[in-house]
């Protein structure tokens, strides 16, 4: 599974360790996140530093996770690489996802 999870002060931090969040990985990613959420986490940070490509299936998976969490303020993204930023911009998802430059920033925002 290309997904690493850790818990920092009760906040779930997921790191995507695949360079591609695409058609091949989207379903597993969705199930992986759902699995983590079922363990009772309500707030999470997704570290996307290793993802340098995302396609529409990957974007769909990310939106589905957001819908599961219910509130963009409780699912923050960090370290988003330029190609993914471009996709967010093209699809206006930059208005939906809340993106922080680093894990620390995202964690600080969730604690606040």
């Amino acid at each position: 599974m290309n997904l690493q999870d850790k818990t920092i002060e009760g906040i779930l931090v997921l790191t995507i360790t695949s360079p591609q969040l695409d058609y091949a990985f989207a379903e597993d990613f969705k199930l992986g996140v759902a699995d983590c959420l079922r363990r009772g986490h309500e707030r999470l940070v997704i570290d996307m530093s290793q993802v340098n490509f995302m396609d529409s299936s990957g974007l769909g998976a990310l939106v589905s996770c957001l819908k599961r969490v219910g509130d963009p303020k409780r699912m923050l993204l960090c370290n988003v690489a330029p190609p993914v930023v471009s996709l967010f911009k093209l699809t206006r998802m930059d208005q939906v996802f809340i993106v922080y430059p680093s894990e620390q920033d995202a964690l600080a925002a969730l604690r606040a």
Partner: peptide, 13 residues
């Protein structure tokens, strides 16, 4: 243009 929301994922798009 500068893109736009895909169809079907954001209700208030």
């Amino acid at each position: 243009g500068d893109g736009g929301f895909p169809v079907g994922i954001i209700e208030q798009a």
